[in-house]
Structures are given as structure tokens and as C-alpha cells.
Design a protein around this nucleic acid. Structure first.
Length: 286
DNA sequence: CATGTTTCCTGACAGC
DNA sequence: TGCTGTCAGGAAACAT
């Protein structure tokens, strides 16, 4: 399940491998679920474009596109290809001859003979195009898509506190809400709350300033450490080079139900919050 | 508007 | 072996 650190790792790998490549043609599969923009829009924006940069916003991979060739060819505007991996989505760079995996929904042919392939068995992932408003050449093509919430690694403490003010929902639900913070999913919500010593069901709006400061620090620490280790490989996550991450070895609560807490040896407990498996230490978290 | 619940999907796994 | 049922979860749709 790719969250912020996994998506960051994948985006960095893709940037290294396909930045500067030119897209010559596109194949889109029959299943409609992966296409959040109409297939015709995807096809038109991608075909003939040049990949200027690959980066991350929240859990989205952003591929900045530029119209190919000299600028006065057509009035084609810069656009962005947005990829959300959902639960099981993958973006692979492959040689054209390589076997096509089952559940491949899109294949983008590059001028150098390689391909970018989107594979997603569960089809929770989504491909879309962000374009500047009609007839208005965007001044900042790299920033068309701004995401749905705030970046957890950039946000100030003041803004972080304001996100949760007055909310009666459990803090874990608030952390998963992409309209508040984006990029945090089930793993890093649980791990961040553990580091902050806060129980997942605590009402978001009732946390003290000190607790919110610990939460922001814990969340940022866990995200940054995970990026360094290439993300968490639970189930079958691998990055764009097919490499597994190693942060799962550092998990203190996630998927450790019944195992002793690494700090106090109390068995880790599992409950359901916002419909998701939620793990915490009943002794360390208050 | 805020919050909770249901839905979409397939692979993995338990139980028989 | 092979079938059935259950579960996982991000985010949108829907209900309260």
C-alpha cells in the first residue's frame, strides 16, 4: 500500500530513469476503472509529449509533460499526468520485449524503445490528466495539480494545529483524511501516533498543543526515516526498479498485534477505527 | 458541513 | 485438490 514514503521513492526512481524521454504512443486497456480522465484525453495529452520531470504531491505521482518539438508547432499546453497507485498499483519501466504482466492497464511507448507500464490488479489506482484552464497557457506548468490537502513534511506547527481544531472525529480518522493532510495512510498514521504517545481514538479537536507538537514531530520523523529506507514493503510493494523497501523492519505497532511493544513489552492491541485495522500500545499511548 | 457507512476490486488465506 | 467465505484498504459515493 503505497503512502507518502513509497510514492516519493517511486517518483524519485522514475524521475531518474525517464526524465527527458519522449512519448511516441500510448495503449490503454479495456477496463474503465483506472481512467479518471476520459481515455481520449489521456491519449491526446500523452502522445508526442516530452517528460520534463517526475515528482510527488501527496500520494500522487506527478509527471510533468511538455508538448514535443518547437514551441510554435501547435497551441498544445503543458499538462501533468497524475498517477495514483491505490492499493496495488505499480509503475514499471520495461523494455518493449519484456513480458506484459496480468492487470496491465496502460503502456506508454518511449522514443528510446522502453515503456512505462501501469499495472494494478485491484484497480483502485487512477490515471488522470491535469491541464491549465482552457485558452490560458499556465505560468507554472509544474504546479497545475496542488493536491487535496497540506504536505505533512512542509506544514508549520501553527497550520498543523489549525487543521484539527474543533473536530470531533478520532485523530486517526483525521490523519487519514486527505483533505486535511495528504500522503498519510494507515501505516504512517499508526506509527506517527505511537511516536507521539497518542491513542488513535482520541478526539482530534481535544488534543493539547503539546500533543499536537509531538504528533507533528513524530509523523515527520517517521515519514522521513521511511523515505531514507525506501518505504515499507508490506504485501508486494516494490519501487520502480523492483527493489523492496526496508522500513517495515522499523514498524513499532503496524501489523504487530499481540507482539510485545518495543518500548515497554506490553502486547500491541488492534482495534477498528474509520473501518481500518489500527494498531497501538495501550501502555505507551494515552 | 461534519461524520459515518458502503462500495469498488483481486489475491491471499482459512476451513472444510 | 478445490471450493467457498472472509478480509485487506484509498477514496468516492451515499446516508445520516
Amino acid at each position: 500500500m503505497p503512502e507518502l514514503p513509497e510514492v516519493e521513492t517511486i517518483a524519485r526512481g522514475l524521475d531518474r530513469r525517464v526524465r527527458g524521454a519522449t512519448i511516441v504512443s500510448v495503449w490503454l486497456g479495456e477496463k474503465p476503472e483506472p481512467f479518471r480522465s476520459p481515455p481520449a484525453v489521456l491519449e491526446k495529452a500523452l502522445t508526442g509529449s516530452h517528460i520534463a520531470r517526475v515528482h510527488r504531491v501527496g500520494k500522487h505521482i506527478i509527471i510533468d509533460l511538455e508538448p514535443a518539438g518547437s514551441s510554435h508547432k501547435r497551441e498544445a499546453a503543458p499538462a501533468q499526468w497524475l498517477v495514483h497507485l491505490g492499493m496495488t498499483g505499480r509503475m514499471l519501466v520495461a523494455e518493449a520485449e519484456a513480458a506484459v504482466l496480468p492487470h496491465t492497464h496502460a503502456i506508454v511507448d518511449l522514443a528510446d524503445g522502453r515503456q512505462l507500464r501501469f499495472v494494478d490488479p485491484r484497480r483502485f489506482g487512477r490515471l488522470s490528466i491535469a491541464e491549465p484552464p482552457a485558452a490560458q497557457a499556465s505560468a507554472e506548468p509544474g504546479k497545475l495539480f496542488r493536491g487535496t490537502g497540506r504536505e505533512p513534511l512542509d506544514i508549520s506547527q501553527r497550520d498543523f494545529d489549525a487543521l484539527f481544531r474543533g473536530r470531533r472525529t478520532p485523530i486517526k480518522s483525521a490523519l487519514l483524511n486527505q483533505k486535511l493532510l495528504h500522503g498519510v495512510g494507515n501505516i504512517y498514521a499508526d506509527e506517527g501516533l505511537f511516536r507521539a504517545g497518542i491513542r488513535p481514538r482520541r478526539q482530534a479537536g481535544r488534543l493539547s498543543h503539546a500533543e499536537l507538537a509531538r504528533l507533528r514531530a513524530g509523523l515527520q520523523a517517521v515519514l522521513q526515516e521511511a523515505i531514507v529506507l525506501g518505504g515499507s514493503s508490506v504485501s508486494d510493494y516494490v519501487d520502480s526498479d523492483g527493489q523492496r523497501g526496508f522500513f517495515q523492519l522499523e514498524h513499532r505497532v503496524y501489523l504487530r498485534t499481540g507482539e510485545p511493544c518495543r518500548v515497554c513489552q506490553t502486547p500491541i492491541r488492534r482495534i477498528l477505527v474509520a473501518g481500518r485495522g489500527t494498531h497501538y500500545c495501550p501502555n505507551c499511548q494515552k
